[in-house]
Each structure stands twice: as structure tokens, then as C-alpha cells.
Design a protein around this nucleic acid. Structure first.
Lengths: 207, 207
DNA sequence: CTTGTTTTTATGCAGTTGCATAAACTATGC
DNA sequence: GCATAGTTTATGCAACTGCATAAAAACAAG
């Protein structure tokens, strides 16, 4: 029998087990019994900490998006000494590095996406983090351009943000799914160079 | 009782039912009984046309990738009158139009992706079409640059292909999942403009 | 140690799953 | 028309699903 633990800890273990299970075996295989196995616990325990299976899936989705977001923002937050251009550069690099660029993260994203399209609660979670991410991209690009004396109008800024966001997302997937064919360093070089051309900036090369 | 039909026709109906079912309700809900419902037949029939459930899922994956590929290539094949640059332009536009840019296609892609990562047979199917797609991108870019008197070395060409491929994939997902926020026409304008900047070409605007 | 509360397991249930089999039906050649 | 081969359905089964409940175990306070 699993030794008794702090509630919060148990909850985290169960959420992590859910994410591991989904990443490894897919959402179809993520049953309450299998999630409990991954956590080293019996299946009834999940219902003690979560209202239903949907509950733990939603919690796992929240945790997953939160981690993606923090992995990107950890690279620039509390670093006020960076120039706007450097901030953008660091942000792009973080989005083209592990733990964001890993098969696990792309697989989790792909597994959750259909749920977020059918289930209202999942859609709401998705919406929240989508807003935050696109807003962050927009602001970083805006500041970087402004620092160069360029003040893009709203339409132009929106277009640039969509293009750079799309580019990074596409490279993220490409890099994560074909790690053998594409080194992280080269992925970053391609991403920085492409973003530089799209924005008319010089973002340099990976360190 | 469903009236008797030509074998090939029945098979197509079952495959289409599978794709519709997965796109609408997700891979987890795609049981043999539900697929049979979508096709308007009883569940036993699936086992008559396919060895197992995996069999019909694989056939559906093949059909799906085949359609994506043909939707893109239909725009340029048997059109030898186009210049290399126009061919690239048409190819990019097709990749940023329905039926490629639709929620259904992105959802199908997301639902199949985890399977292609676990199951060897599914991985093989994915590999085949991945090769074809990336090769096509490479060739189109290569020809377009050559027509401008530029002969990129292998590394440069590879990098450009990865960047443009990533860009288009990212815009594909972005456009399909937020159709309310992003008109197809604007998506195409963003894509053509971004590809132009990445390649140093002038690909124009959507018609 | 005993009492009481919180956490964990054990067990069971109704519904669903993929798959197998035999029966019923439909078309076609003679 | 009628026998034969090719399709489709009907039915059943063992395994698994999410969820409910009660019993058991772990812990904290006295």
C-alpha cells in the first residue's frame, strides 16, 4: 500500500502520472486504472482527489499549458537589463529549446487538442493560455520594433505576430518530431534567421 | 438493412465514416460500432472489409494523407506553363486554403499523430507521406531560386525548406483553429509575404 | 493506547469495447 | 427459378471502462 502523503503532493503525483500516461500511450489509453498505475496507486484514489475523470484530465491540461508558458517566459522574466531585441531573441530561443521542443510536449499538445475542440471546459482552458501566449508574442515584437524607431500600425503588428507565431509553432513541431534529422542548434539558427527576415531585425545566432 | 453495394464503394464509405467520426468525436470515440453508425451499417461489416480495427484506422490515415497531398499538388500538377516562381506561389496558396485549412484536417492530423508515434504500421504510413511532402517543398523552392539565377548550396536549401515548411504548417494550424479571428484571405497574404521575405522572392498577393 | 479524522484500498456494477460466429439476406449464372 | 457465391446482420463473449461504496489503513491529538 502506498504510504500516506500530503494531499497536495498526491495531487501533483496524479497529475504528472496523467501527463506521462497520455504522452506515452495516448489519450485513448489514459484510463483511470492506468493513470493510477503510473502513479503507483490504486484507481479509487483518483476519485478521492478529483470529481471525475474529466476533472483530472482538465487539471493535467492546465498544468501542461502552464509549464509550456513558464518554460518560455522563464527565459525573459525578471531580466529587465535585456534590450527589447534581446528579450525577443531569448523568447524565441526558449521556444526552440527543450523542454518545449520535445516529442512529449508535442504529443501532449496533439492529444489534448481534439478535447479542447469538443469539451467546453477544455476549450476555456485552452482559450486562456492562447490569449496569454499570443499577447506575449505581440508585445515582444512591438517593443523590439519600437526600439528600432519603427512604430507598426495595428494591422501590420498583427500580421507580423501571426507570421512569427506560426513560424515558431511549425518549427516547434518539426523539431520535436524529427530530432534525428534536425539538431536543436540548427533549428534555433533557422528560427532566429527566419524571424530576423520576417521582422527586418538582426536577432543573431544561437549562443 | 443497408442495400448491397460494390465492394470498393463499401470500403470507401467505411473509410470516410472513420474519418468523419474521428474528426467530429476524436479517436477515443471512434469505436467499430460508432464508425458503423456513421456509415449506416452494422458493426460486423467492418470486420468483413478490414482485418481488424487497426486495419481500418490505417486505411483512414492513408486516405487522409493522400487527400492532403493531392489537395496541394492538384494546384500545380499538369500545369507546365507556370514559371517556377508561380508554381511555388500556387503551392503555398493551396496549402493555405480549404480543404487543407479546415478544422477537420487539423483535428484529423492531431488525432492521428500520437498513433503514428506508437504504432509501427502507422509510423510507416506517416514516413512515406512526410518524405513526399518535404521533397516537394524542397524542389519547388530550389527551382524558384534557380530561376532567379541563385543556386543555393545543400545546407542553405535545406534550411530554407525547413523554415518555409515550418511557417506553412504553423499558419495552417493557426488558420484552421481560429477561423473567426483570421480570414483565409489574410492568412494567405501573411503566408505569401512571409515566404517572400524568407526566400528573397516576390510571390505577390492572393488573387 | 485510544479515539477520531483523513487517506487509501478492495470490491462490485452496469455499460461499453473489439472480435468471433452463425444465420439471414442479396445478387448472379445457369 | 434455383443453386451458388458474395454481403450484411444478429447475437454473444470475455475483457475493460468510469464510477460508487464500504472496509481498511495511516495518521494526529488526548
Amino acid at each position: 500500500m502506498a504510504t500516506r502523503r500530503d494531499s497536495n503532493d498526491r495531487e501533483n503525483v496524479l497529475i504528472d502520472a496523467t501527463l506521462t500516461c497520455i504522452a506515452r500511450e495516448g489519450i485513448s489509453a489514459a484510463t483511470v486504472r492506468k493513470i493510477a498505475d503510473y502513479a503507483g496507486v490504486t484507481n479509487g484514489l483518483i476519485r478521492f482527489y478529483f470529481k471525475s475523470k474529466d476533472g483530472i484530465i482538465q487539471a493535467a491540461y492546465r498544468r501542461f499549458l502552464e509549464r509550456l508558458f513558464e518554460a518560455a517566459h522563464g527565459a525573459i522574466e525578471a531580466r529587465r537589463e535585456l534590450t527589447p531585441q534581446e528579450r525577443l531573441r531569448h523568447y524565441l530561443l526558449a521556444n526552440l529549446s527543450p523542454p518545449i521542443v520535445t516529442p512529449e510536449s508535442v504529443l501532449l499538445w496533439a492529444n489534448f487538442l481534439p478535447l479542447a475542440h469538443q469539451d467546453a471546459a477544455m476549450a476555456e482552458i485552452r482559450e486562456l493560455w492562447y490569449e496569454r501566449t499570443t499577447h506575449a508574442f505581440r508585445e515582444l515584437i512591438h517593443e523590439a520594433l519600437r526600439a528600432q524607431g519603427r512604430e507598426p500600425d495595428e494591422v501590420e503588428l498583427r500580421r507580423l505576430a501571426v507570421a512569427v507565431n506560426g513560424l515558431i509553432d511549425g518549427l516547434w513541431i518539426e523539431g520535436a518530431l524529427s530530432a534525428e534529422r534536425l539538431e536543436i542548434r540548427e533549428l534555433q539558427a533557422i528560427g532566429l534567421d527566419a524571424a530576423s527576415r520576417l521582422l527586418g531585425l538582426t536577432l543573431g545566432e544561437p549562443a
